[in-house]
């Protein structure tokens, strides 16, 4: 059984040493196993699409939408179970 107290003591001490060495920031690149980064575009503009202007599609066209099945890139996900609770 590892001694948690010793582990914690050693770890917090090395943390403080970092501070003394002045190497805290910026993050050490070697430690960062970056996977994917993306700059997310701002989505502040709550503009209304032109297609929704007066007179277009005022009827609810979704009545028989239960017939829809996903038809996107999900076809490229294979193997394993895709069913809930399976």
């Amino acid at each position: 059984m590892t001694n948690t107290k010793t582990l914690v003591s050693t770890a917090v001490s090395s943390l403080m040493l970092l501070g003394i060495a002045g190497t805290t920031l910026p993050a050490n690149a070697a430690d960062m196993d970056k996977c994917y980064g993306v700059v997310k575009a701002g989505k502040n503009d709550c503009q209304t699409a032109n297609s929704s202007c007066a007179g277009t599609s005022t009827k609810d066209g979704q009545k028989d939408a239960w017939m829809y099945v996903p038809k996107g890139t999900c076809e490229k996900l294979v193997g394993g179970s895709t069913k809930s609770g399976a």
Binding site: K43, T56, T73
Partner: peptide, 28 residues
């Protein structure tokens, strides 16, 4: 209609990968 279009566009902006996975019709 404007309300649904605006909120659908909002979801589209937050969930682009879900939309791509299921396609435009299913997402709407």
């Amino acid at each position: 209609n404007n309300l649904f279009v605006t909120l659908t566009d909002t979801l589209r902006a937050v969930y682009p990968v879900v939309e791509k996975l299921v396609g435009d019709g299913f997402f709407r």
